Amino acid sequence: MIPYATAAEAEAALGRAMTWAEAAWYQYSAAMPDSWLHCHTTFILFVIYTITPLPLVVLEQFAPSVVLPYKLQPRVRLPLAASLRCYMEAACFFPLAVGFQLVSYPVAVKQILRTRMGLPLPSVREAVAQLVVYSLLEDYLSYWIHRLLHTQWGYEKIHRVHHEFTAPTGFAMSYSHWAENLLLSIPALSGPVIVPCHITTQWLWFSIRLIEGINTHSGYHFPFSPSKLIPFYGGAAYHDYHHYAGGHSQSNFAPLFTYCDYIYRTDKGYRYHKLKQAKLKSLEENNAEKKGGTTAFDIGKD
């Protein structure tokens, strides 16, 4: 709750006029308890998780010719009922998260996260710098937790739930054992704990991370994929191989960037797989050319 009764008081405290964004934030949050602003995080993530995977799920079911050329495992078609089951089982955690946020608010936000709720809003430069730090830190910690989950005990007791989908869908991003969801929340929260931010930056950070996770689990690799634009970004093709290889996979543990897999040499299986695919594609193209040439030659000879 912003401690100013009027916009004029807020501007006097800032020592300047509010920007349009700050004016909008003041109008929205001035009378709203900070605990409710904190709970917005779960609501935003629930909406994103519900809506973002839907277009590909719907197109795959009702207009497959549009998207199947870009599907990484085109022979695997997930039934609509399986997608719905995946969504329902994952979505049930969101209401629990709201309750946990309300109960833990005094400690989680005020003492651990130290999240700012009021004015001023962060500058674009500040928000971008924080997001970069959060991404790098989360990526490194998640890599090691993911490797831990692929030990025999970690996989059999926890991680096998997530690997039920060998050809993942966007909804599979949050389809995991409760203990895995808890463990992987640690890297995501580590950045905001170490480098405290405004609640709006926090919303943006968790939203970007969720959208990215849905993308890597989508099962599709489009020409406009971020992996073609952002250095060391794995994308859907990179993580899809991890699911394709199954529970015994010791490759492609990185959730976002690929530098950890490169440094610790846990991308060998994927690189071999890509090399094998390239050779098979080249062989198929050569065979097609030979067949085409033979046919034309025979026709000319006749």
Rank of each mutant, 00 (worst) to 15 (best):
A8P: 01
S83T: 10
L54A: 14
M88L: 14
A81Y: 03
Q27Y: 06
L78D: 15
A236L: 06
S104N: 08
I214N: 07
K71W: 04
G247V: 03
A21F: 10
L54E: 06
L14P: 01
P226R: 02
A12R: 11
S29F: 05
G15L: 08
F253D: 03
S104E: 05
M117E: 00
F206M: 13
F46Y: 11
F232E: 01
R125K: 10
P3F: 03
A21R: 14
V195M: 10
Y140E: 13
Y270R: 05
L149C: 11
L256V: 09
L148R: 07
V98G: 00
G219A: 12
P223V: 11
G269T: 05
A81M: 04
V98D: 00
K110A: 05
Y272L: 15
Q250R: 15
V195W: 15
N287C: 09
K157Q: 13
L136C: 04
A237H: 12
V109D: 05
I214C: 06
S83Y: 06
A91H: 00
I263Q: 10
Y134Q: 04
P255D: 09
A82D: 13
S83A: 10
I48W: 01
Y143M: 04
V107Y: 09
P64H: 07
S174T: 14
L210Y: 14
E164D: 13
P223G: 11
G191E: 12
V124M: 08
V103E: 00
V128E: 01
L37F: 01
H273Q: 13
P255E: 10
E60A: 08
I145H: 09
I230D: 00
H163L: 13
P168N: 11
L283W: 12
H150Y: 02
S65E: 15
H177T: 14
L275S: 14
A31G: 04
G246A: 09
V133R: 14
Q27C: 03
V57E: 05
W178N: 14
L84K: 03
Q152S: 15
G293D: 11
P196H: 08
Q73Y: 07
P64A: 06
P196G: 08
H159A: 13
T294Q: 11
I145R: 06
G293E: 08
A296G: 00
D261F: 05
V47I: 11
G191K: 03
D261G: 09
W20Q: 14
W144S: 04
F43A: 07
Q27G: 06
V132G: 12
A24Q: 05
Q277A: 15
F94R: 02
T41Y: 01
L204R: 06
T50I: 05
A245I: 11
Y28H: 04
G293Q: 08
V107D: 04
L121V: 01
T200N: 15
T201C: 11
P192Y: 08
T294E: 13
I230W: 02
D240S: 05
E60V: 00
F165R: 11
T52K: 08
S282M: 09
P79L: 09
L183P: 07
Y244T: 06
Y220I: 13
P33R: 01
G15Q: 05
E11C: 09
A127Y: 10
M18K: 05
H273N: 01
A129H: 06
A245H: 10
Y49W: 02
A8L: 10
